[in-house]
């Protein structure tokens, strides 16, 4: 995965506690999924799909329910310059939304990203997802 630095202007970050909280979340957790609902109870099909992949691959990730906090819901869209939820961050970098994560899962790029980032995951489970969608 090449660079995907969030484009945030100085003005957008000024006095916005939501953005500080987002920075803290992605700074202290290797894998963070901003989603609707929680990993155990997703409230949207797109969020459910990405959380499901991560759960199935045995990835330890922090889930942030954007429905619980409107300032985070809008804040993460501004922070990532990305209009949709879910959004996946690995090691502080924005990886993508549902479509990109699905593509990367099936192509094996997500495995490579986790390996690079030193994030433990179940390779056999990832292979099973690919076999089932071949």
């Amino acid at each position: 995965m090449s660079e995907a630095t969030p484009e945030v202007t100085a003005d957008a970050t000024a006095d916005n506690p939501a953005l500080d909280r987002i920075r803290s979340l992605i700074g202290t957790n290797a894998v963070v999924l901003f989603m609707k609902g929680s990993k155990s109870m997703p409230k949207c099909g797109f969020s459910s799909r990405v959380a499901g992949v991560l759960n199935y691959m045995g990835v330890d990730f922090a889930d942030v329910d954007v429905l619980a906090d409107p300032s985070i819901r809008q804040g993460i869209k501004d922070f990532s310059d990305w209009p949709t939820i879910p959004q996946l961050y690995v090691k502080g970098e924005f990886v993508g939304g549902c479509d990109i994560i699905t593509e990367m899962t099936l192509s094996g790029e997500l495995d490579a990203l986790f390996e690079q980032a030193g994030v433990p995951y179940d390779k056999a489970a990832a292979d099973k997802i690919r076999e089932a969608n071949a």
Binding site: M1, S2, A4, P83, G96
Partner: peptide, 17 residues
């Protein structure tokens, strides 16, 4: 990369999403 490509498409949709 894909993120940059899709950001460009989202931008073309001008807030419709």
């Amino acid at each position: 990369n894909r993120v940059q490509q899709q950001r460009a498409v989202y931008a073309s949709l001008k807030g419709k999403m």
